[in-house]
Amino acid sequence: MASLPVVNQPPHQCGALLDHLSRRVRTRSETVLAPLGLRPRHLLTLTVLRDHGSSTQQALAATLGIDSTNLVGLLNDLEADNLIERRRSPEDRRRHVVDLTDVGAKKLAKAELAMAAVEDEALAALTLEQREQLYSLLQQATATTDIAACVGAEDESVPPVMYR
């Protein structure tokens, strides 16, 4: 049996390690966010609204990389807790614009403190300098990801999600 040719592979593959680390972080994240009544997907939505401002539901779905039908359920959860507000777009009454409320901004700040502790646990073996380097490398790697191609969106004006 002939072996497959190896084309420009780095000496180490990162995918399995990134997957393992992300699973650990996600499990802990769910645990620390639950008392706040949030899930990781809620946190991401609130973060996008804070960092990018008001958004139409369609643009928000594309930015988050989720189906607009699933977004409605997610926004229903957040709106029920007064974390976001939906209103009709003045330009196009068929569209809804989503805004972060003051209550949502305060809840997001609490959640980010909880998430900082999770990150401290997960990255405890790294120095502060190494964490900054990891952050920079991950930003660089994700900056080349074409969000529109990943979700099949046609709207290239949708900004990619940037993490802090």
Rank of each mutant, 00 (worst) to 15 (best):
S3T: 13
L4M: 11
L4Y: 10
V6N: 08
V7H: 08
N8P: 05
N8K: 15
P10C: 10
Q13N: 07
Q13T: 08
C14P: 00
G15K: 09
A16E: 15
A16L: 15
L17I: 09
L17S: 10
L21C: 13
R23W: 09
R24S: 14
V25K: 07
V25E: 11
T27G: 14
T27C: 14
T27Y: 13
S29T: 14
S29G: 15
S29M: 08
T31V: 12
A34T: 10
P35W: 08
L36E: 03
L38D: 03
R41G: 08
L43I: 04
T45L: 10
L46C: 06
T47F: 09
L49Q: 04
R50C: 01
H52V: 14
S54W: 00
S54T: 10
S55C: 06
T56F: 04
Q58L: 03
Q58W: 00
A59L: 01
T63K: 00
T63R: 06
L64P: 04
G65D: 04
G65S: 01
D67Y: 06
N70S: 12
N70I: 07
L71K: 00
L71Y: 05
L71T: 02
G73K: 06
L74I: 05
L75H: 01
L75A: 01
E79R: 09
E79K: 07
E79S: 10
E79P: 01
A80N: 15
D81G: 12
N82I: 03
L83A: 07
L83D: 05
I84P: 04
E85V: 08
R86D: 01
R87V: 06
R87Y: 03
S89H: 08
P90H: 11
D92I: 10
R93P: 15
R93Q: 14
V97G: 02
V97W: 06
V98E: 02
L100D: 04
G104M: 07
K106S: 11
K107A: 09
L108D: 05
A111Q: 02
E112P: 06
E112R: 13
E112K: 12
M115V: 11
A116K: 09
A117K: 10
V118Y: 01
D120V: 04
E121C: 07
A122G: 10
A124G: 12
L128Q: 07
E129H: 07
E129T: 08
E129P: 01
Q130E: 13
Q130C: 00
R131H: 06
Q133F: 13
Q133L: 14
S136F: 07
L137F: 00
L137P: 00
L137A: 11
Q139K: 13
Q140R: 12
Q140T: 12
T142W: 07
A143D: 15
A143I: 00
A143L: 11
T144F: 11
T144M: 09
A148M: 07
A148F: 03
A148G: 05
A149E: 14
C150A: 15
V151P: 04
V151S: 05
A153Y: 05
E154D: 14
E154I: 12
E154A: 15
D155H: 06
S157Y: 03
S157W: 02
S157G: 04
V158R: 03
P160Q: 10
V161W: 05
M162A: 13
R164G: 13
R164L: 09
